[in-house]
């Protein structure tokens, strides 16, 4: 298991895992909201009361603390993926990396620049903030 290859390797792993998780959630979300106006077989406007009924049933189904926890974790993943993604776009265009220079021992690679690493920690921080905010919305952990 690759644990000792540095920060950027962790960022790569988390970015992939969060991306797949968010995409799977996206599929579930589209299907769930589509159900409210009548499911895959309905292509014309359903009666208002039917939509309201399905919505109330869905809301009751989702009022489970397990789903609330899942949404909070998803909030962490979404915020991490978003801000780490900004960092990746900047890094992929070489903007926050150091310029090439002659290697002097001990070699400090220009790609592992402080700017780029700081942005990683900013992403983690914002993701944790989102997690705490979501937990507060669902479970009122902070009593703000």
């Amino acid at each position: 298991m690759p644990f000792r290859y540095g920060l950027e390797r962790w960022s790569y792993t988390l970015q992939r895992v969060s991306g797949v998780a968010i995409t799977l959630f996206f599929v579930a979300h589209i299907v769930e909201t589509g159900n409210v106006v009548g499911g895959a077989s309905v292509w014309s406007i359903p009666p208002y009361e039917l939509a309201k009924k399905v919505w109330t049933e869905t809301e009751a189904f989702l009022a489970n603390p397990l789903f609330d926890m899942g949404l909070s974790v998803l909030g962490f993943l979404i915020f991490f993926h978003a801000f780490n993604g900004i960092r990746l776009v900047l890094a992929h265009f070489g903007i926050i990396l150091k310029k090439p220079s002659r290697p002097e021992y001990p070699y400090r690679p220009g790609s592992m620049s402080p700017a780029q690493r700081a942005l990683f920690w900013v992403s983690i921080l914002l993701a944790v903030a989102a997690l705490v905010y979501a937990l507060n919305v669902f479970f009122e952990v902070l009593r703000l």
């Binding site: 290859y5 920060l7 390797r9 960022s11 790569y12 690679p109 790609s111 592992m112």
Partner: peptide, 10 residues
């Protein structure tokens, strides 16, 4: 994907 492991071990 900029995992950076290459630069870490060079």
């Amino acid at each position: 994907h900029f995992a950076g492991s290459c630069s870490k071990v060079c």
